[in-house]
Every structure is written in C-alpha cells, then in structure tokens.
Design a protein around this nucleic acid. Structure first.
Lengths: 167, 167
DNA sequence: CAATCGTGGATAAATAATATCTATGATTCG
DNA sequence: CGAATCATAGATATTATTTATCCACGATTG
C-alpha cells in the first residue's frame, strides 16, 4: 500500500496557491522549483488538477495557476482522488472462482465479504480526508511556506511570485 | 494507491484455514491450487504470515499450515500489515525543505500539517480493519468456499484436505 | 510579430510488484 | 535407515507501474 509522490506535490501546490493574494497567479515552473521537482513532471499533476477543476490555468507570458474554487470548497480528498484516481486500493479479484476445480458459479452470487470489509475501511479513510479543506491548512501553509519566501530574495520562485501577484 | 494482490490471497488463505476442523492442516500446494496461483508465490506470503505468527507451519509429508491463534484473535489489520508492511501509505517527503532556495531549517520544526492529516486518515482506515476478525468472516467463508470443496471430488485440494484433516 | 506559457501525447528510465526456480534442512513414513 | 514430502530462504527473471523527460502545438500577452 503506497501513495504516489504526486499526491504530496499536488497538495502542497494547492496549499500554496491558496495562500496567494486574490487573483494571484503562479507559473508551474515556480512551483516546481520551489518544491525541488522537475517542471515537466509537476505539470502532469497540475494538468490533472486542472481537469478536475480544482485549479485554473491561465496561458500567456503572465499566466500561471490559481485555485478554481474557494479554499473552503477544496478538500484533501478531492486532490487525492484527482491525482491517484478514484479506484479503491483493494480490488477484489474474486480468487474464490479462479481455482481449477469446478466450483459452481451460483455459489458466488453474493459479493465477497472480504471485499465488502476492505471497501468499508477505505470509505472511512476517505471520509477523514473529505473533512479537511485547503482552508483548514492555509494558515499553517502561509506561516511555514510563504513566510520563508518573503525572505528568500534572489530565489526564482520569489521573483516569479512577485512578478505575478504583485505587479 | 493500490493494495497488492498478495493481501487478497493471504486473507483468503487465513479464512480457509480458520474453517478447518480442529488440528486440521492444509499444505501450501493445496491452497495455491485452490486459489489458482503458483505455489511458489503463495509460499512467500504464507511464510510472511508465519513470521508474523498468524499461521503455523508443520513440516513433513503430512505437514501443512494452520492458524497460530484463535480466529477471534486475528484481525484483518494483522494480515494486511503483515503482507503489506507497517509503513503508512503516505510518507511525507518534506518537500517544503527541498527547494533550492535557502529556506531556513528552523521554520520546519513543526511536523508537516499535511502529513498529520494524511496519517490520521490512515489511522481511521486501520481502525476499521482492526475491528474485523477472521472469526467474523468464518461463517461466510465456510459457506462460500469450503462448501464448494465438499462437492469438488477429484480436486487435488479436496484430496489434500481430506488426507490432512480427516485421516 | 515574438516571447512566454500551458496542453497533450509520446516516450524513456527507474522502480516495484509479481512470479518462478533452485538448493537446503527438517520431518514422517515404509 | 532411506526415500519421499514439505517448509524455508535466497536468487532471479518477468511484467507492470511509476516516475520523469521531451517535443510539437495552440493560446495569450505585450
């Protein structure tokens, strides 16, 4: 059981975008540099978030990304499902029916009980994530992430950020 | 986010072992054939379960596997953690600190809030699995899985089972 | 018109999961 | 005692998935 790195990157990106001033924009390259990941790779996730309508992209020389909705309306679950996909972690392969012996199919009308329990646990997992919004995280992100940026003059991220949201 | 196939195999194996008569033994080859997977591969997971002291192995021509504890004392979480490993699905990479800009380390004393939320969700997930024991599943397994076996004469699984737990 | 940026697909590299094989040691049965 | 059966454990191949990069295209701004 593992969660891809993309999830962490995506969450941090959304959190930082939430900390931008109103109508602020941040180019993908700036987000990538700040996180120390390749721009091309991060773009993949940003575009996924864009398709999921969690963020908006603005093309052009002064373009970039911003949130598509209010921070209160974006939950961690939204981000995780967008990046990781909606399929549950446990997929019942119905191995009960795979044996070479002629187990009659009518014995398996009922869905596998094991599958049922595993999915119930996953539902609890998602429910927890659904209750946390980006707005809930915003305060700390503003403190931990962006406050550092203010001091980081000369950093390309800072330059880009200033150029975009404080022209 | 994905759970390996081994989890499903392991759970079914444990469930079937729970349905055996007292002191019954089942060879790995029989379990593998019944599930339609290779013996060598299933052995890997059975040995993992053995190391986790969820099942016991008995060597020798009439050997095989049986539960190491009462079905009421084996939870789904035990099996999932044994096979999948105890590490959480979300591992905070602290990408806040990875950027090329000289963000001072003292800004990151507090553990990442995102990490905290993700782990809380995973805790809820595990709590659900902890509340389901093999005994809870045993009734249905006995009906769905082993009842079919009783009719499956000529199947090597049936032969092995009979040879072992009803000598 | 030119520079900048996002889009999207194709693709390569890296990593992990899956599956198999072989050798070894222990145990039981004839 | 010896042969057969089984679990153990490590090595290894195979496949799938993840991660990462690249390039051509279209849109937008100045």
């Amino acid at each position: 059981m593992k969660l891809g790195d993309g999830v962490e990157q995506a969450i941090h990106c959304v959190a930082i975008l939430a900390a931008l001033p109103k109508d602020g924009l941040l180019p993908a390259a700036a987000l990538a540099e700040f996180h120390g990941v390749s721009t091309s790779y991060l773009l993949k996730h940003l575009q996924t978030l864009s398709r999921a309508e969690l963020v908006q992209s603005v093309p052009g020389p002064t373009g970039g990304y911003r949130l598509a909705r209010a921070p209160e309306d974006i939950t961690l679950l939204d981000i995780v499902l967008a990046v990781e996909g909606p399929e549950p972690a446990f997929r019942c392969k119905e191995i009960r029916q795979r044996g070479p012996n002629p187990l009659p199919g009518y014995m398996f009308k009922a869905p596998c009980q094991i599958n049922r329990v595993m999915l119930r646990a996953e539902k609890a997992y998602r429910e927890e994530l659904r209750q946390v919004t980006i707005a809930d995280l915003a305060a700390q992100v503003r403190t931990d992430d962006t406050e550092g940026l203010i001091e980081a003059r000369g950093c390309a991220f800072f330059d880009a950020a200033m150029r975009h949201y404080a022209p």
